[in-house]
Design a protein around this nucleic acid. Structure first.
Lengths: 119, 119
DNA sequence: GTGCTGCTCAACCATTCAGTTGAGCAAGGA
DNA sequence: TCCTTGCTCAACTGAATGGTTGAGCAGCAC
């Protein structure tokens, strides 16, 4: 099976599942409540919940016949950590490039009559 | 076609593509360079790059026969904005629940002999 | 018990996806 | 000019995905 990070990204790649997560952020809900707004079968919603559950984004408990669904928001950290790492690396690289360009610019300005400076 | 946010999540759901993004964070690379570490055909890598490109995570330019690949890190913001919104909502909800529990606890402590306090 | 509600499981189907191979194209280098 | 390099496109394949329907089960209500 894929690693959790892959499963989280995969789970959120579907607009319906993202919408479910969005709604669960404000309140827990039963499968039926979650299914109501969508024009698909209850079974399809149940399947999507299984995907979210497999990614660790959601847990299901039991209350008589109902299976209330609860959002586990901590899993978001997995993603944000990954994203921020490479966002930061790319940003730092951009800064270095910027500094390099500035330095080259300075050298040109410091020696305006250098025979190599003009093209 | 799916919306961009879906395409970004979808693109990053694959470990190979995430690894490519990770490597592109430190330096641009050609298709061949990117393909080198993986045990798949060049065409497969080219296809994965197309997915990343479709998500806006990457752009390709031209340098003679080579097609240098460049990471566009700004797209990460799309994801982090989505994530942070619902992370925040879930967090606030948790805070409210916490406050409610604290308030209930206070009421019990304030009126310890209330006939309704004990079950 | 019987029946209703809320949900899951199993089987199936169409579509998408990640990989393959084979062909071909653009841009130097001989 | 022909060859090599670096890559893309097209067609195919097997596996996974997202949906369907039908059956069935757990937990109340009667």
């Amino acid at each position: 099976m894929a690693d959790q990070l892959s499963r989280v990204f995969q789970a959120l790649a579907d607009p319906t599942r993202r919408d479910m997560v969005a709604r669960l952020a404000t309140a827990d809900a039963t499968v039926g409540e979650l299914a109501a707004p969508y024009d698909v079968s209850l079974q399809a919603v149940s399947k999507n919940l299984k995907v979210l559950e497999g990614a660790g984004l959601v847990t299901r408990s039991r209350d008589a016949q109902r299976r209330p669904v609860h959002l586990e928001a901590e899993v978001f950290d997995l993603m944000t950590k990954w994203i921020e790492r490479y966002q930061r690396e790319a940003e730092e690289r951009f800064q270095r490039l910027d500094a390099l360009l500035a330095r080259m610019d300075d050298e040109v300005n410091d020696q305006p009559d250098d025979e190599g400076a003009a093209s």
